[in-house]
């Protein structure tokens, strides 16, 4: 092996390590005793005659403990990431990335919707895909169905002529609910949303992870005001807390509901950001509730292994096949 081979292999390092490499390194902090001594010494030397109080990095009031956990499952490398598969080597669901139906454009999620969740037939739609080598646009007619409980403004599922009886999820990328209530209703979130780990942000320091924050608490404290307007143009400030959120039915896994220090709740569920101003007080109250009444952990990753299980997550999504580097999953039937 040559150095060049090793350099190439290092290029396949996991995404999170690549990102880490450009994060600000944590600066070592003085212990409070050292800081106090330093401040006192400074006050004496400078002859200021005042007692300088050191700034202590705030930590969640409930404290936290270090927890050794297996390293999260690596996303896998993307070997030769810019080798685009040829048209003839792809399956229809990979070829046809968009679907036109009823005047709307939907994009694929590479998710096979379980037969029990496929609703009424809505009519015919047109799949479209572009051959990246010839630039030729291909189209194909297919049958479009409702996803049970989900507004067709947000998502549908559709069947390819060569794969009858299998309907893949297509998401309206332009879907923009006017209010939080509409978002909840359109996605049937009361039934379809599940939440997992909660991460309290601490700047460059590792997040404090809370494992026992139930979805109901999220509903009661953050999602109760259905009248909140969605502000698609908002530019929220830094995140203070992030909740892992899933809509398994449509293939959204480990997305986020994030609270920002300037009072926004935003989520990347579905294909675009949705921003709701819930107010600083609600954000602070939620962070306080989490940090003061629940046990937080700093995760220390031991070695590679299975991902840390999240509450209620066990195998709700069953993998059915991996082809051409694309995982096609089938959503679980409704419970």
């Amino acid at each position: 092996m040559r150095a060049e081979d090793l350099f190439e292999a290092i290029g396949q390092m996991d995404d999170r390590f690549v990102e880490e490499g450009r994060e600000a390194p944590a600066v070592k902090k003085m212990t409070w005793k050292k800081a106090l001594a330093a401040a006192a010494a400074l006050a004496i030397v400078a002859g200021l005659g005042i007692w300088a109080v050191p700034k202590i990095t705030p930590k969640p009031a409930g404290g936290y403990i270090e927890k050794h956990v297996p390293a999260p499952e690596l996303n896998g490398d993307i070997p030769e990431i810019y080798r685009v598969p040829h048209w003839e080597d792809m399956r229809d669901v990979q070829r046809y990335v968009s679907l036109s139906f009823d005047g709307k454009e939907y994009v694929t999620k590479l998710i096979l919707v379980h037969a029990e969740n496929v609703g009424a037939e809505l009519g015919a739609g047109t799949f479209a895909g572009q051959d990246n080598y010839t630039d030729e646009i291909h189209t194909l007619e297919g049958r479009v169905f409702e996803v049970k409980g989900v507004n067709t403004e947000a998502a549908v599922c559709a069947e390819f002529p060569d794969e009858l009886g299998r309907a893949y999820a297509y998401i309206n990328a332009m879907y923009t609910p006017a209010t939080l209530g509409q978002f909840i209703d359109d996605l049937n979130l009361r039934e379809t949303l599940s939440t997992g780990l909660v991460y309290v942000k601490r700047g460059a320091e590792p997040d404090v992870v809370y494992e026992d924050i139930g979805t109901e608490m999220v509903w009661q404290q953050l999602l109760s005001d259905a009248a909140l307007a969605n502000e698609p143009e908002a530019n929220p400030g830094p995140a203070v807390l992030s909740i892992s959120a899933n809509i398994d039915l449509l293939g959204y896994h480990n997305h986020t509901i994030t609270l920002t220090e300037d009072g926004y709740l935003w989520t990347n569920l579905l294909e675009s950001g949705k921003y709701f101003f819930i107010g600083r007080e609600k954000v602070q109250a939620f962070v306080k509730e989490v940090t003061e009444n629940h046990q937080g952990y700093i995760y220390i990753y031991d070695d590679a292994g299975e991902p840390v299980p999240e509450a209620g997550e066990e195998s709700r999504v069953a993998e059915t096949g991996v082809e051409e580097g694309v995982t096609v999953v089938q959503t679980a039937p409704a419970e």
């Binding site: 292999a9 290092i10 390590f17 490398d77 031991d302």
Partner: peptide, 15 residues
């Protein structure tokens, strides 16, 4: 073999 090498490097880094 390249993939295995890349995975091993990832494992090393994860630790």
């Amino acid at each position: 073999a390249k993939k295995e090498l890349a995975e091993a490097i990832n494992d090393y880094l994860a630790g």
